[in-house]
Simulated scan of single mutants.
Amino acid sequence: MNNIYDTANKLEQELRETEAYSDLKVAFSTVKADSEANEVFQKFQEVQMKLQQKQMSGEEILEEEINEAQEMALKSGENNLIKDLMDAEQKLSTLVDDLNRIIMKPVQDIYQG
C-alpha cells in the first residue's frame, strides 16, 4: 500500500502542472512586473491581512477600516492585471476545493452513514 504522504506529494507535483496553477503563476508575475498594479495589489493584501488578524483575535473592525478595504477592493478591481490575478486565484481555489471534497469524502461518509 502506498504511503498517504507519498500520494499527497504526488498530488502537490501534479497541481503544479495544472493550467490553473500555470495561469496563477503568470498572472502574479505580470502584476509584479507592473509597478502600479504591484503597489495596489500589495496595499490590498496589507489591508486584507490586517482585517483578518483583527477578526481572528476578536478585535472590533472599525468602520473606517471597512471603508478602506472596500476602497482598495474597488481600486484593485479597476486594474485589469489585478483582476486577471484574482480570476486566476479563483480558478485555482475552485480546483483545490474540489480536491478537498474528494479527500474528505471518507470522513463525510462516516458522519452521514
Rank of each mutant, 00 (worst) to 15 (best):
E17D: 07
Q48L: 03
I4N: 07
I110F: 04
A33R: 05
K43L: 02
E39S: 09
M104N: 04
R16S: 09
M72K: 01
Q42C: 11
I102L: 05
E71T: 12
L11A: 10
I66G: 04
G77K: 13
L92N: 00
K75C: 05
N79E: 00
A73E: 10
G58Y: 02
N2M: 14
S29M: 09
D98K: 15
I103Y: 01
L99P: 06
K105I: 13
K105Y: 15
Q108M: 10
G113R: 06
P106F: 15
A20L: 08
E78W: 08
V31L: 05
G58K: 00
E64V: 03
F28T: 08
K54D: 10
Q53M: 12
K105L: 15
D98A: 07
M86Y: 01
N79I: 00
N67T: 08
N38E: 04
T30Q: 08
F44D: 02
G58M: 01
I110V: 14
K32W: 06
L15S: 11
Q42Y: 07
E68T: 00
A8C: 12
E71Y: 03
L24R: 11
S22H: 07
I61E: 00
A33G: 01
K75E: 15
E89S: 08
A88G: 07
G77V: 10
E59M: 12
N2P: 14
N79Q: 10
